[in-house]
């Protein structure tokens, strides 16, 4: 049912660290691998061995360059459903297949009632919904709802597949609604932000900006002070006498 819950008990989401992401795609394929056999099974692939291979994925990683020349920088940018608090992708749905869970704020598509009208994907500013051409229903990040509470998985593994796989630890999972949660603290400390706040969708996922680069201050020549004291003799003689002093300490 597409009326949004007044409030949700939790606001579960991902916190993605753009300062650490190297763009390795582990979160992309682990997501595909888990979910193609999970809640959203299958995530079909079209022309998999042909000229135009494309399929349904719930998470994609872009790479951008920002700025020009020497001062430019590169950033890898994972993009999946942000589990917004007030997303039109839910309210526009004519069937109720698209809904937001009151319990944890996870936005889901019910694959058994979706008619594949695609309207929700139009309403999503973040390109987080992908239509499954084979099955005829809409797919999206489930926040691994079939992992995070799964009693058949050990406690420590009850996190999204992408978080579990990420080799650099650039992905964090938790309750961004609870100011005391680790993720919220991380967001506070690192100046985490929302994507396209102007849309008013209030994402539950947050992004941590690239940290200011260290020592990118214009290079300064080594001050004389830092060079060795200049005593008499050739450069080498001075070096050797220094070495002798050092060793005879």
């Amino acid at each position: 049912m597409t009326s949004l819950p007044q409030t949700t008990e939790k606001k579960l989401g991902l916190v993605i660290d753009l300062d650490t992401c190297v763009g390795c795609q582990a979160c992309v394929t682990s997501c595909k691998e888990w979910n193609t056999g999970g809640y959203s099974a299958p995530l079909s692939d079209q022309d998999p061995y042909g000229a135009d291979p494309h399929g349904t994925w719930l998470n994609r990683v872009h790479a951008y360059e920002i700025g020009e020349g020497a001062r430019s920088q590169a950033v890898h940018f994972p993009r999946s459903c942000l589990h917004c608090e007030e997303p039109d992708c839910v309210t526009v749905c004519p069937t109720g297949a698209s809904y937001k869970r009151a319990e944890d704020g996870i936005v889901l598509v019910n694959p058994d009632t979706c008619i594949g009208c695609k309207l929700c994907s139009w309403a999503c500013p973040y390109g987080a919904r992908e239509y499954d051409y084979e099955v005829g229903v809409m797919r999206k990040c489930t926040l691994c709802v079939d992992r995070i509470y799964n009693e058949n998985l050990p406690e420590e593994d009850r996190v999204p597949a992408c978080v579990r796989a990420c080799p650099t630890g650039a992905r964090h999972f938790g309750d961004t609604g609870d100011p005391e949660s680790d993720v919220s603290k991380l967001v506070a400390e690192r100046g985490g932000y929302d994507l396209m706040p102007e849309m008013g969708y209030k994402p539950q996922n947050k992004y941590l900006p690239p940290r200011p680069r260290q020592n990118m201050k214009p290079a300064a020549p080594v001050e004389e002070a830092q060079r060795a004291p200049t005593t008499a003799g050739s450069a080498l003689e001075r070096l050797f006498s220094w070495a002798d002093q050092q060793l005879s300490r």
């Binding site: 582990a26 394929t29 682990s30 595909k32 691998e33 888990w34 420590e156 579990r164 080799p167």
Partner: peptide, 28 residues
Amino acid sequence: KDGQVRYIEGNRDHPVNKGVLCGKGSAG
């Protein structure tokens, strides 16, 4: 599952990857 590969994840105890898995390994 049913004799087929359902999913591949990193082994948390393993010295090399300590649980994580890269983009290739996850497409095994």
